[in-house]
Design a binder for these strands. Structure first.
Length: 280
RNA sequence: ACACCUUCGAUAUUCU
Protein backbone atom coordinates (compact mmCIF):
# COMPACT_ATOMS: atom_id res chain seq x y z
CA UNK A 1 0.00 0.00 0.00
CA UNK A 2 2.64 2.49 1.06
CA UNK A 3 4.75 1.47 -1.90
CA UNK A 4 1.94 2.36 -4.25
CA UNK A 5 1.46 5.67 -2.48
CA UNK A 6 5.09 6.57 -2.87
CA UNK A 7 5.16 5.56 -6.53
CA UNK A 8 1.94 7.36 -7.34
CA UNK A 9 3.20 10.47 -5.60
CA UNK A 10 6.46 10.26 -7.49
CA UNK A 11 4.77 10.13 -10.88
CA UNK A 12 2.27 12.78 -9.89
CA UNK A 13 5.10 15.11 -8.95
CA UNK A 14 6.79 14.54 -12.28
CA UNK A 15 3.53 15.34 -14.00
CA UNK A 16 3.10 11.85 -15.38
CA UNK A 17 -0.54 11.42 -14.48
CA UNK A 18 -1.04 8.61 -16.97
CA UNK A 19 1.36 6.40 -15.08
CA UNK A 20 0.10 7.61 -11.70
CA UNK A 21 -3.43 6.73 -12.68
CA UNK A 22 -2.38 3.36 -14.05
CA UNK A 23 -0.75 2.50 -10.73
CA UNK A 24 -3.85 3.65 -8.93
CA UNK A 25 -5.99 1.25 -10.93
CA UNK A 26 -3.49 -1.56 -10.47
CA UNK A 27 -3.58 -0.89 -6.76
CA UNK A 28 -7.36 -1.18 -6.68
CA UNK A 29 -7.25 -4.39 -8.68
CA UNK A 30 -4.86 -5.93 -6.21
CA UNK A 31 -7.24 -5.08 -3.43
CA UNK A 32 -5.06 -2.42 -1.83
CA UNK A 33 -7.08 0.26 -0.12
CA UNK A 34 -6.16 3.78 -1.14
CA UNK A 35 -5.66 6.16 1.77
CA UNK A 36 -6.03 9.88 2.04
CA UNK A 37 -2.38 10.08 1.01
CA UNK A 38 -3.10 8.27 -2.23
CA UNK A 39 -5.96 10.55 -3.11
CA UNK A 40 -4.06 13.65 -2.13
CA UNK A 41 -1.17 12.77 -4.41
CA UNK A 42 -3.50 12.23 -7.34
CA UNK A 43 -5.48 15.37 -6.57
CA UNK A 44 -2.28 17.37 -6.42
CA UNK A 45 -1.11 16.06 -9.77
CA UNK A 46 -4.38 16.68 -11.57
CA UNK A 47 -4.73 20.11 -9.96
CA UNK A 48 -1.34 21.15 -11.19
CA UNK A 49 -2.33 20.10 -14.68
CA UNK A 50 -5.51 22.10 -14.47
CA UNK A 51 -7.65 19.00 -14.92
CA UNK A 52 -10.42 20.21 -12.69
CA UNK A 53 -12.95 17.66 -13.92
CA UNK A 54 -10.79 14.77 -12.82
CA UNK A 55 -10.06 16.50 -9.54
CA UNK A 56 -13.73 16.78 -8.73
CA UNK A 57 -14.52 13.24 -9.81
CA UNK A 58 -11.67 11.90 -7.72
CA UNK A 59 -12.81 13.87 -4.72
CA UNK A 60 -16.32 12.44 -5.03
CA UNK A 61 -14.88 8.92 -5.29
CA UNK A 62 -12.83 9.53 -2.24
CA UNK A 63 -15.85 10.58 -0.19
CA UNK A 64 -17.87 7.69 -1.54
CA UNK A 65 -15.17 5.28 -0.38
CA UNK A 66 -15.45 6.71 3.09
CA UNK A 67 -12.04 8.31 2.98
CA UNK A 68 -11.95 11.39 5.18
CA UNK A 69 -10.43 14.46 3.52
CA UNK A 70 -7.89 16.48 5.48
CA UNK A 71 -6.40 19.94 5.12
CA UNK A 72 -4.07 18.70 2.36
CA UNK A 73 -7.08 17.50 0.41
CA UNK A 74 -8.82 20.84 0.59
CA UNK A 75 -5.69 22.74 -0.25
CA UNK A 76 -5.29 20.55 -3.30
CA UNK A 77 -8.84 21.34 -4.36
CA UNK A 78 -8.20 25.00 -3.72
CA UNK A 79 -5.14 24.87 -5.91
CA UNK A 80 -7.18 23.12 -8.58
CA UNK A 81 -9.62 26.01 -8.76
CA UNK A 82 -6.83 28.57 -8.67
CA UNK A 83 -4.88 26.90 -11.45
CA UNK A 84 -7.84 27.19 -13.80
CA UNK A 85 -8.52 30.72 -12.62
CA UNK A 86 -11.86 30.01 -10.99
CA UNK A 87 -11.43 32.31 -8.03
CA UNK A 88 -15.13 32.38 -7.27
CA UNK A 89 -15.16 28.66 -6.52
CA UNK A 90 -11.82 28.95 -4.77
CA UNK A 91 -13.19 31.59 -2.42
CA UNK A 92 -16.33 29.59 -1.81
CA UNK A 93 -14.34 26.52 -0.80
CA UNK A 94 -12.02 28.65 1.29
CA UNK A 95 -14.96 29.94 3.31
CA UNK A 96 -16.48 26.49 3.65
CA UNK A 97 -13.36 24.83 4.94
CA UNK A 98 -13.81 25.85 8.56
CA UNK A 99 -17.25 24.26 8.69
CA UNK A 100 -15.83 21.10 7.16
CA UNK A 101 -13.44 20.70 10.02
CA UNK A 102 -10.40 22.05 8.24
CA UNK A 103 -9.90 25.75 8.87
CA UNK A 104 -7.68 27.41 6.28
CA UNK A 105 -3.99 27.40 7.12
CA UNK A 106 -1.04 29.31 5.75
CA UNK A 107 -0.94 27.07 2.67
CA UNK A 108 -4.60 27.78 1.93
CA UNK A 109 -3.91 31.50 2.10
CA UNK A 110 -0.80 31.25 -0.03
CA UNK A 111 -2.67 29.26 -2.65
CA UNK A 112 -5.41 31.86 -2.78
CA UNK A 113 -2.93 34.72 -2.89
CA UNK A 114 -1.17 33.05 -5.78
CA UNK A 115 -4.50 32.63 -7.56
CA UNK A 116 -5.34 36.31 -7.16
CA UNK A 117 -1.93 37.34 -8.43
CA UNK A 118 -2.29 35.05 -11.39
CA UNK A 119 -5.51 36.89 -12.18
CA UNK A 120 -3.58 40.14 -12.17
CA UNK A 121 -5.00 41.32 -8.87
CA UNK A 122 -2.03 41.69 -6.55
CA UNK A 123 -3.67 44.49 -4.58
CA UNK A 124 -6.58 42.26 -3.61
CA UNK A 125 -4.11 39.52 -2.83
CA UNK A 126 -2.32 41.82 -0.44
CA UNK A 127 -5.55 42.27 1.46
CA UNK A 128 -5.48 38.55 2.11
CA UNK A 129 -1.97 38.89 3.45
CA UNK A 130 -3.14 41.49 5.97
CA UNK A 131 -6.17 39.41 6.79
CA UNK A 132 -4.15 36.34 7.63
CA UNK A 133 -1.97 38.30 10.01
CA UNK A 134 -5.10 39.44 11.80
CA UNK A 135 -6.59 35.97 11.99
CA UNK A 136 -3.57 34.65 13.81
CA UNK A 137 -2.02 32.81 10.88
CA UNK A 138 1.33 34.41 10.38
CA UNK A 139 2.28 34.90 6.74
CA UNK A 140 5.47 33.01 5.94
CA UNK A 141 8.23 33.87 3.49
CA UNK A 142 6.36 32.11 0.75
CA UNK A 143 3.36 34.38 1.24
CA UNK A 144 5.63 37.33 0.59
CA UNK A 145 7.42 35.67 -2.30
CA UNK A 146 4.18 34.97 -4.10
CA UNK A 147 2.98 38.51 -3.67
CA UNK A 148 6.30 40.04 -4.67
CA UNK A 149 6.24 38.00 -7.84
CA UNK A 150 2.65 39.06 -8.39
CA UNK A 151 3.52 42.73 -8.19
CA UNK A 152 6.57 42.17 -10.33
CA UNK A 153 4.59 40.55 -13.13
CA UNK A 154 1.97 43.26 -12.75
CA UNK A 155 4.66 45.86 -13.31
CA UNK A 156 4.35 47.39 -9.84
CA UNK A 157 8.04 47.39 -9.05
CA UNK A 158 7.78 49.79 -6.13
CA UNK A 159 5.25 47.62 -4.37
CA UNK A 160 7.44 44.60 -4.93
CA UNK A 161 10.46 46.32 -3.42
CA UNK A 162 8.47 47.53 -0.45
CA UNK A 163 7.21 44.03 0.29
CA UNK A 164 10.67 42.59 -0.07
CA UNK A 165 11.93 44.80 2.72
CA UNK A 166 8.87 43.99 4.76
CA UNK A 167 10.04 40.40 5.00
CA UNK A 168 12.93 41.29 7.27
CA UNK A 169 10.92 43.89 9.14
CA UNK A 170 8.35 41.28 10.06
CA UNK A 171 11.04 39.09 11.54
CA UNK A 172 11.31 36.61 8.68
CA UNK A 173 14.36 35.64 6.63
CA UNK A 174 14.24 36.25 2.89
CA UNK A 175 14.82 32.95 1.10
CA UNK A 176 16.68 32.28 -2.14
CA UNK A 177 13.26 32.52 -3.80
CA UNK A 178 12.76 35.99 -2.34
CA UNK A 179 16.08 37.17 -3.69
CA UNK A 180 15.68 35.68 -7.12
CA UNK A 181 12.19 37.11 -7.43
CA UNK A 182 13.12 40.66 -6.49
CA UNK A 183 16.35 40.61 -8.47
CA UNK A 184 14.55 39.39 -11.55
CA UNK A 185 11.94 42.07 -10.99
CA UNK A 186 14.56 44.82 -10.78
CA UNK A 187 16.50 43.59 -13.77
CA UNK A 188 13.42 43.43 -15.96
CA UNK A 189 12.65 46.98 -14.93
CA UNK A 190 16.08 48.00 -16.20
CA UNK A 191 17.47 48.41 -12.69
CA UNK A 192 20.24 45.84 -12.79
CA UNK A 193 22.41 48.10 -10.63
CA UNK A 194 19.85 47.93 -7.85
CA UNK A 195 19.67 44.19 -8.42
CA UNK A 196 23.39 43.94 -7.83
CA UNK A 197 23.03 45.80 -4.54
CA UNK A 198 20.43 43.28 -3.39
CA UNK A 199 22.68 40.47 -4.53
CA UNK A 200 25.53 41.81 -2.39
CA UNK A 201 23.18 42.09 0.57
CA UNK A 202 22.26 38.49 0.07
CA UNK A 203 25.84 37.31 0.07
CA UNK A 204 26.66 39.52 3.06
CA UNK A 205 23.75 37.94 4.93
CA UNK A 206 25.20 34.51 4.28
CA UNK A 207 22.80 33.57 1.50
CA UNK A 208 23.97 31.19 -1.19
CA UNK A 209 22.95 32.45 -4.63
CA UNK A 210 21.78 29.89 -7.14
CA UNK A 211 21.23 30.00 -10.89
CA UNK A 212 17.83 31.68 -10.60
CA UNK A 213 19.45 34.56 -8.73
CA UNK A 214 22.48 34.95 -10.94
CA UNK A 215 21.15 34.44 -14.46
CA UNK A 216 18.74 37.38 -14.57
CA UNK A 217 21.37 39.54 -12.94
CA UNK A 218 24.10 38.59 -15.36
CA UNK A 219 21.81 39.16 -18.32
CA UNK A 220 20.55 42.43 -16.88
CA UNK A 221 24.02 43.77 -16.22
CA UNK A 222 25.19 42.84 -19.72
CA UNK A 223 22.18 44.46 -21.26
CA UNK A 224 22.84 47.67 -19.33
CA UNK A 225 26.51 47.47 -20.35
CA UNK A 226 27.63 47.29 -16.77
CA UNK A 227 30.43 44.99 -17.77
CA UNK A 228 32.77 45.59 -14.88
CA UNK A 229 30.01 44.58 -12.51
CA UNK A 230 29.12 41.62 -14.69
CA UNK A 231 32.71 40.38 -14.51
CA UNK A 232 32.73 40.86 -10.79
CA UNK A 233 29.57 38.83 -10.54
CA UNK A 234 31.07 36.17 -12.73
CA UNK A 235 34.01 35.71 -10.39
CA UNK A 236 31.71 35.70 -7.41
CA UNK A 237 29.73 32.92 -9.07
CA UNK A 238 32.84 30.87 -9.49
CA UNK A 239 33.50 31.29 -5.80
CA UNK A 240 30.10 29.80 -5.07
CA UNK A 241 30.53 27.11 -7.70
CA UNK A 242 27.36 28.40 -9.22
CA UNK A 243 27.04 27.01 -12.71
CA UNK A 244 24.57 28.69 -15.04
CA UNK A 245 24.36 27.39 -18.60
CA UNK A 246 26.85 28.22 -21.32
CA UNK A 247 24.82 30.83 -23.27
CA UNK A 248 25.07 33.28 -20.38
CA UNK A 249 28.84 33.11 -20.46
CA UNK A 250 28.79 33.62 -24.18
CA UNK A 251 26.83 36.83 -23.80
CA UNK A 252 29.26 38.15 -21.28
CA UNK A 253 32.27 37.29 -23.40
CA UNK A 254 30.63 38.70 -26.50
CA UNK A 255 29.91 41.99 -24.78
CA UNK A 256 33.43 42.15 -23.43
CA UNK A 257 34.81 41.58 -26.93
CA UNK A 258 32.67 44.32 -28.33
CA UNK A 259 33.90 46.65 -25.63
CA UNK A 260 37.44 45.61 -26.60
CA UNK A 261 38.17 44.42 -23.10
CA UNK A 262 40.29 41.53 -24.19
CA UNK A 263 41.99 41.14 -20.81
CA UNK A 264 38.66 40.45 -19.17
CA UNK A 265 37.64 38.08 -21.91
CA UNK A 266 40.78 36.05 -21.36
CA UNK A 267 40.25 36.02 -17.62
CA UNK A 268 36.72 34.74 -17.97
CA UNK A 269 37.72 32.19 -20.55
CA UNK A 270 40.60 30.89 -18.48
CA UNK A 271 38.57 30.66 -15.35
CA UNK A 272 35.96 28.66 -17.20
CA UNK A 273 38.37 26.15 -18.67
CA UNK A 274 40.36 25.90 -15.45
CA UNK A 275 37.26 24.88 -13.58
CA UNK A 276 36.49 22.24 -16.10
CA UNK A 277 33.68 23.94 -17.99
CA UNK A 278 33.92 23.78 -21.71
CA UNK A 279 32.92 26.97 -23.51
CA UNK A 280 31.55 26.15 -26.92
C1' A B 1 4.81 3.33 15.74
C1' C B 2 7.48 5.53 11.73
C1' A B 3 7.37 6.88 6.75
C1' C B 4 4.53 8.71 1.97
C1' C B 5 0.35 13.99 0.36
C1' U B 6 -0.75 20.59 -0.52
C1' U B 7 1.35 26.70 -1.88
C1' C B 8 6.57 30.54 -4.37
C1' G B 9 11.43 32.22 -8.40
C1' A B 10 15.27 32.67 -13.60
C1' U B 11 16.85 31.13 -18.53
C1' A B 12 14.50 38.58 -22.29
C1' U B 13 20.49 37.59 -24.23
C1' U B 14 26.00 35.38 -27.89
C1' C B 15 28.36 33.11 -31.89
C1' U B 16 24.42 35.37 -37.09
Amino acid sequence: GVVYNVLIDGFAKRGDMGEANRLFEEMLEKGCVPTVFTYNSLLSGFSRKGELGRVQRLFKDMIRQGCVPNIFTFNNLLDGFCKVGDMVEAHRLFLEMRGLGCPPDVVSYNTLIRGMCYKGKPHEAQRLLREMAKSGIGPDVMSYNILIDGYSKYGAVDHAIKLFYEISKSGLQPSAFSYSTIIDCLCRAGKAGAGLVVFKDMVAAGGVPDAAVVIPLLIGLCRNDKLTEACELFHEMMRFQCVPPIPEYNVLMYKLCKAKRSDDVCLVFHELTERGFSPD
